[in-house]
Design a binder for these strands. Structure first.
Lengths: 362, 362
DNA sequence: GCCTAGAATGAGACCGGACTCACACGGGTT
DNA sequence: AACCCGTGTGAGTCCGGTCTCATTCTAGGC
């Protein structure tokens, strides 16, 4: 009794029957391969039309071994960074005739491992992964072993011989920090969601290979060149994981030797930090200067407009997909490591230190 | 010569061979069905372990007829509305053991039709579609005919007997408009990206069934009740398609009888409108009041904070996925039409009309 | 007029699982 | 001793395509 007839799909066999030819001939006419007479072809095509035939991609994938699908594994699709990168990936894949399966990891390693396995089991032709920070790469090795191409996004894993696409960060972070130093900021706070398991930041903590490490390296170089000690006590990791962003911001702007400038590692952090600053009635840039990584449409519309480091996010997606498609196409050359240029956009949220303190508090 | 051995996957047959049992027994042990002795089971499992066996989901899907995958068709994943809804869909699907294939239509009907067909050919177990406005529903009928469930998101199609999840719009739009009228705004501009092929808006233009129609209905009711004529000349459709948003805003705030309040139909439009207003040095709310549909984190951080209509976007995604999963589970009850409550959040961007004109321009 | 290359065609293997069927085996009934 | 049932097992079919292989048909070459 269970259910009413689940309306079976029409198959090549059905088409063949109606067209009065063998299954093989029908398949040939439909697939456009082998030799088929015009007579048969038109009969088969007509039959397919009347029967509304659509090939079962699953069956097709199974014995061609290729699914014309790529998998994308990201940390959080809700994050504008990923959704924009996704758009780049999507547009490029589609232009190449590939569909996209999206998997969201919630920045969790176990989920990421699972995601990669699922994609492999679904026989995607390749995948783009934005690996969770501090993830090991054993699960990605399985992909490499399977012979399917992987491209890493926003992160490279030194141990893994695969292509990667990141935004150049060290140089632009150096520039951004110099900008802050030029304005007199030596107490620069940095807030990142990088998960290091709650360990406190110290100058020689190994954070692995990721954008945050690069940014901190650029920052350090600027401080070193200016001969100013890097304010390690103001560099806070685990934001939004171990620690609330609001608390972190509070801690930075209060205390005996507070930060005079705050750098937000991404737009999600920036939003929460700005909200907290507003709640605490800390004015930007009068009381504290503010800089964020990632350029979003709203950044320039705030009062004051926010100074940002703009990364070519969409282009990263495009580049990653382009490389992946090339690999799927059979390119076996050495892994490529692309670093797309980022740039500092100076707006109004960074001002000389103490610029308005006297006038404003009086 | 083509390529080096594409490292074949291990199959049940391989596992069976190593475990010295028949393929059938191995499959049973692996799949956890039928009767298998403890002896055989452990041998098979051990073999699977050493061979790193992973089942081919394609093959599995093919003869179970179910792929444990749902398809999602959205207009633009880069739009925060969709990425947040996607997150809701994603979380819910995943909890139910389903993977998600994402297809982006770029708000194009042809692409949408294609997308739906692709998903069908990939044999997804069901799909969630946010249909392009003014789309016909013939392509969705094919889905219905196939017996696979579809849930519409953000839109219902009267001709299509399927579930839908939307945000309640008429009532909240009524409230928002009353709020504007209460503040003395009778010249209210409305900017929407709804594509009507460049036709100008008139009060009796049929826009089909979609959120914009609902909003305009709520708006009209408020105007009717206040006995004020609906300013049809200020209602502009096709924003970002036929017309540039900047030009539209310019047109609204200039002219002999300009708008005193502007309503942006979504956050993307709002962002561009705000940028244009800033360029034109039109102050909010002194020169013009502003209201947008969709609540985003930055809205409350602007100066002044933006008054918005908040829709439960994430929850819409969750609800759509929940209904879909229920249908996949075999629920054959009448189509459900869910309208999740939205609410007006009054902030600082709406002020009494003419409130600061004299003081500010003097 | 005969031979052959190549087009046209059908039968059937195959991809990798899920699942049906037939059968062997052992213990409990009567 | 004959019978039954349930567990365990292997052989083999099926899903819906792709593709190989053998066969037939036809046209061109000598």
């Amino acid at each position: 009794m269970e259910s009413s007839s689940a309306s079976r799909y029409t198959t090549v066999a059905d088409v063949a029957r109606l067209a009065q030819v063998s299954k093989a001939q029908a398949a040939r006419a439909l697939g456009g391969y082998g030799a088929v007479s015009d007579e048969v072809r038109s009969r088969v095509l007509a039959a397919a039309e009347t029967l509304q035939y659509h090939p079962n991609e699953l069956a097709r994938s199974m014995n061609t071994g290729r699914s014309k699908t790529i998998g994308v594994v990201v940390g959080d699709i809700e994050n504008p960074y990923f959704s924009l990168a996704m758009r780049g990936i999507y547009d490029t894949s589609k232009a190449g005739g590939f569909d996209v399966i999206l998997i969201n990891t919630g920045e969790d390693l176990a989920t990421e491992i699972d995601a990669v396995n699922v994609l492999l089991d679904k026989r995607v032709d390749g995948m783009i992964v934005a690996p969770v920070t501090r993830s090991s790469s054993t699960h990605l090795n399985r992909v490499v072993d399977s012979g399917r191409p992987v491209v890493l996004l926003d992160r490279k894993l030194p141990s893994l011989p695969v292509d990667s696409v990141v935004a150049e960060m060290r140089q632009v972070s150096y520039e951004a920090t110099r900008h802050l130093l030029d304005e007199g900021h030596t107490r620069v706070g940095y807030i990142s969601s990088l998960d290091v398991g709650g360990v406190e930041f110290t100058v020689d903590l190994d954070l692995g290979t990721n954008p945050v490490t690069e940014r901190l390296a650029g920052m350090r170089r600027a401080f070193d060149e200016a001969d100013v000690p890097l304010p390690a006590d103001l560099i806070r990791l685990g934001a939004g994981k171990q620690y609330s962003i609001g608390d972190l911001v509070q801690a930075l702007v209060t205390g005996p030797d507070p930060a005079t400038a705050i750098v937000a590692s991404d737009s999600v952090i920036a939003l929460e930090a700005l909200a907290e600053l507003q709640r605490a009635e800390v004015r930007i840039p009068d009381d504290v200067s503010f800089l964020m990584f990632d350029e979003l449409p709203w950044a320039g519309l705030m009062t004051p407009p926010i100074t940002v480091v703009a990364q070519p996010v969409y282009d990263q997606g495009v580049a990653a997909a382009a490389i992946l498609l090339r690999r799927i196409g059979g390119d076996r050359s050495e892994p490529e490591h692309l670093a797309l240029p980022s740039r500092l956009i100076r707006r109004g949220s960074v001002a000389p230190v103490g610029s308005a303190v006297v006038g404003a508090s009086a």
